[in-house]
Write a protein that binds this DNA or RNA. Sequence first.
RNA 1: GCACCCGUAGCUCAAUUGGAUAGAGUGUCUGGCUACGAACCAGAAGGUUGGAGGUUCGAGUCCUCCCGGGUGUACCA
Length: 577
Amino acid sequence: MQSPKSLLSRRIESALRTLLPADAELPFPLIVPTQNPDFGDFQCNAAMGLARVLRKAPRQIAQDIVAALDVAGLCAEPEIAGPGFINLRINPDVTVSCLQEMSQDQRLGLPTVAEPQSIVVDFSGPNLAKEMHVGHLRSTIIGDSICRFLEFEGHAVSRMNHVGDWGTQFGMLLHYLRTTQPEAIEQPDSFAIDDLETFYREAKLAFDASDEFKTAARKVVVELQAGDPDILAIWRVFCEESLRHCHAIYKRLDIKIEDRGESAYNDALKGIVDSLQEAEIAEISQGAVCVFIEGYETPMLVQKSDGGYIYATTDLAAIRHRIQVQEADQVIYVTDARQHEHFDKAFQTAERMGWAPADALRHVGFGMMLGADGKPFKTRTGGTVKLKDLLQEAEEQAFTVTRELGSDHLTEEDLPAVSRTIGIASVKYADLLHAVGTDYRFSWEKMLSKDGNTAVYLLMTYARTRSLGTKGGIDVQNLVGTVPFLLETPQEQKLAKKLLATLDVWPQVVGELAPNVLLQHLYELSQDFSGVWNACPVWKDGVDPAVRDSRLAIAGLLGNVIAWGLNMIGVEPLERM
RNA sequence: GCACCCGUAGCUCAAUUGGAUAGAGUGUCUGGCUACGAACCAGAAGGUUGGAGGUUCGAGUCCUCCCGGGUGUACCA
């Protein structure tokens, strides 16, 4: 469906076409929402920009635009202000009819893409040698949310877990496993490591303590790379166990992802290097095979001087595989921003080699999670925070807060499940609320605070929309799209316009892969609804039944929007809390 | 050294990609539950957008130079 803004944009576009040469590019954006309601709902700033092109005074151009503009049935008479702003105020009946249309659509008026693509999203990607830690949190949460965006758009999304399942540290781990738990090889089903971190530490201790161990560990690496069946079997046992740990986390976070480790590309690595050399894109320098890239001092190494391959080689192989074998139209990498240079180099190289079309590869780099002191988030003793501990802590704190505040809507038995949801939702929300690209400070206090912009606020708003009908025995969802909207108060009108703005915000969210823009919008919606809640009674004596129905329907629609929005960040709303 | 990112209210963060008076939350102050969820709402105070130039009708945003912080920078990922 068309939002009021897009309806208006079309009219502006027609008006501008009459004033500009046929081949001229239209100014962008045609209109933007006003920041101040005194200026109406939308404003067109095109006149100022066209002043030079048309060699006319901007205010005169604004008048010309207004003269050519047909706003019949859409908005009030445009007003020209300041240097040439054109202010536009949407007719109330347009708001109502658009809201009606939105209410009747399962997708809330949001379209699917005309040409669905096959898109690979590479995210999470922990190293199987160790336990998942906070460093994987942002990639996992942001990556999942991006997948949800693209899936909702109608794309075919492959969620790929490019786990670190290869490399020298596996020699140490596998040899340690072989010596301490030989029965694991015979009975892989019964094998389990309680704590990967401890296991790693113990293996490292053994490695450092004994030259014999070191030699054996290095031999294991060689055998592993040579494809020795016995060693491969141990390797599989270990990787599967480590992956079980990962998927326990994913399950807790309600995240689906498909594992495809680095090792899957082993057989392709030699071919990658050969091709690069044949194409004379790679050359040998200081004994290593390197790709020099314009603008960078240092090359990207694809083969070490000892003949070994490194992550750049694997990433190139993965790119080629994803584009050529998986037939992806697009590959999106969600990793921390520090890897920007690496991916820039890899992407440029892949494009030059014809392994990926231009603009098919995209790196979404996120900032670091910092502690209250502004330094990387660590435990009190300076250690790495395990992801499972962080989630545990979040759930426990949510439990405490939930119980302290109490609820007339919950029984004691509801508490564990509800607080788990709140805890996990809070972690996701606090992360995605921040712009992806920048560092942010992690704060337990803010995240689970009882007031402010938190997951709890949105969840509570949703629960309130759902419970609003109970007093009259009505399910508000049944009224959505079936009763007329009567927007009597300023609060309701504001909320109605904001609901329609969802249609305009969404393209930006998915275009920029910016969850924070979505959450900002949902928060504003919730605030506007709270305003309605306090100003517009539903069950008070004397409320006109038609007004009552309208108010219940708005609550119902808002609930649907919040539920949808939370779903886009991987949060399932609670009916009661 | 070179490259990239950042510097916005006491604190944590936004700012529709160059638009009008830079916005939220928190904290501080004032007020509000016989109406349905107060985990809420209404209002007040709080700013030389690190600094200096420049580009133009208009700059937090673009260009140059400083200051301060972070990250990367040849065989880890």
